[in-house]
């Protein structure tokens, strides 16, 4: 291993996924070639129906591709899932209402058979990481939407998966909360050195967070542009006013426009 940034974590070649529906086949993904290296923060952006969520679900072995190949940590997605290679954060926090915040974070640990002491220690650590210390005994309904989503991130971080897949995790939150969580997510990424796959439909969010931006377009779902961000890894919020930021955002917008077919 010479350079960590050159280790491919997720590699897709000629990947395609066609759903058979009553109205005929739907090409959710077509000819996807993409390599994600260790430690990258990759955003998938595109209009709805472009297959960005589907691609994330293929990585997570929640959907099976119909063409091409994909490896996750050098394994098939199924083996990677069984090896608990990734944590997945869904659009909704999906916390169990009958468990406290701490209980929710411990849930995957219970399933994976961690010892009681280990569960408590890990829950404490990840809740500190997402700044929810003091809310361990609260039930989800006692927390705001932003806090619930932070708890769900903590839950995905609680076990040692080095990949974090996030499907529009902040989509349902307001702009101000979203900014704060974006900032925290970057800090978290810097501290944990995980590889992150992040689905969004917000251009500023994608540009602000990512080291690599994958622009996608619909019918069939495909990649129209892959942008390696020249922004430094350390990013204060006001980087969004810089020339570079605006240039990348512009290029993303162009990519989205090019892929957009009015029909």
């Amino acid at each position: 291993m010479r350079d960590a940034s050159l280790v491919p974590v997720i590699a897709a070649q000629g990947l395609g996924l066609t759903f058979r529906t009553a109205d005929g086949p739907v090409h959710a993904l077509k000819d996807i070639d993409l390599t994600i290296h260790k430690g990258e923060f990759v955003s998938f952006i595109g209009p709805s129906g472009c297959g960005k969520t589907t691609f994330l679900r293929v990585i997570a072995d929640l959907e099976a591709p119909t063409e091409g190949t994909i490896t996750v940590n050098g394994m098939s997605p199924g083996d990677a899932r069984r090896a608990r290679a990734y944590g997945y954060v869904f659009q909704a926090a999906g916390l169990y209402p009958w468990r406290t915040i701490e209980g929710n974070v411990k849930l995957p640990l219970e399933i994976m058979g961690y010892s009681r002491a280990e569960r408590a220690e890990r829950a404490r650590r990840v809740l500190e990481l997402v700044e929810l210390t003091g809310f361990e005994k609260k039930f989800p309904w006692q927390l705001s939407g932003g806090m619930q989503q932070r708890a769900s991130i903590a839950r995905a971080l609680a076990f040692d998966a080095d990949i974090l897949l996030m499907d529009e995790p902040f989509g349902a939150l307001d702009e101000i909360v979203r900014d704060r969580l974006n900032e925290e997510l970057l800090k978290l990424w810097a501290r944990t050195e995980k590889t992150i796959g992040f689905v969004t439909h917000s251009i500023p969010e994608a540009v602000y967070l990512s080291t690599k931006i994958v622009v996608m377009s619909p019918r069939p779902g495909r990649i129209t542009d892959v942008i390696d961000s020249p922004l430094p890894r350390e990013r204060p919020l006001d980087i969004r006013d810089s020339r570079e930021f605006i240039d990348i955002a512009h290029r993303v917008r162009e990519g989205l426009r090019a892929g957009h077919v009015d029909d």
């Binding site: 944590g87 995957p108 399933i111």
Partner: peptide, 12 residues
């Protein structure tokens, strides 16, 4: 479906 998918991601 999301909660069931979630269980699957943990290989429950």
């Amino acid at each position: 479906a999301m909660q069931l998918d979630q269980m699957k991601t943990w290989n429950a």
